[in-house]
Amino acid sequence: MKFDMDFIAHNNNLSLMNPYYKLIIAILIMLFSLIVNNLIIDIIVFILMGILITLVAKISFKSYLKFITIPFIFSAITCLYLIFFTGTGEIIFNTHFFGIVVTDKSLNLGINTFCRVFACFSCLGFLALTTPIAEILHCLRSCKVPKIFIEISLLMYNTIFIFLDQLDRMRNAQETRLGYFGTKSAYHSLASLFTNLFVKSLDKSEKLQCALDSRCYDGEIPIYKPSKVKKDA
């Protein structure tokens, strides 16, 4: 099964909790770990958020792992770069290769950065996994975040799913015709996949514009704020 973040956000133990609380919890803890800048605190925050996500919100551990894999890879690469290519100070490991060395300062910096990134990321993950996007956007709106940001994220959010779906279908079509056997053909297939996706995206955006215009769009997406649900009929 594919990882469906939206489904998780709608179906967990915390999805009905007031989104403002969740937003405040996530942002406060994130700011806290950023300001304090302490390795131990970062690790505690990460563990705390892990507990909130898996035990309190009852999101399966597997989904959470999937969710953090990609950011893990990215931050690991960044931090490896930091460890090997920056910093001065006492050399603690010498690769004897183009003079690349690990110093105590760079090691420190790398590990610290990694932990901070992960502490902050787990806060955001908590928010993203427990709160449906529509509610987050509503919160941001009432926090007076500029409209343009909200409109762009709103449109992006929805098109991401269409985009991924399209990507999936095109890749399946290519794989059906053995497009990814052999390095050369894989590069070629990948290139045409992205070209095509780009052209299709442009086409889609034009169509969306037509559809919005047909419903009297005037450059600003209006806000729908229904009064509290009336349980009649």
């Binding site: 449906p132 996007i133 529509a134 956007l137 709103l154 449109l155 959010y157 929805n158 098109t159 269409i162 889609k204 169509k207 969306l208 037509c210 559809a211 919005l212 047909s214 419903r215 009297c216 769009y217 005037d218 997406i221 209006p222 806000i223 729908y224 229904p226």
Partner: peptide
């Protein structure tokens, strides 16, 4: 106008917000 591909037309994160788009405009 109801467009051929509903994905071209429906853009809001929830059903009700999408339906509300026209009337609010």
């Amino acid at each position: 106008i109801v467009f051929q591909n509903p994905d071209d037309q429906i853009f809001a994160p929830t059903v009700e917000e999408d339906v509300a788009f026209g009337p609010l405009n």
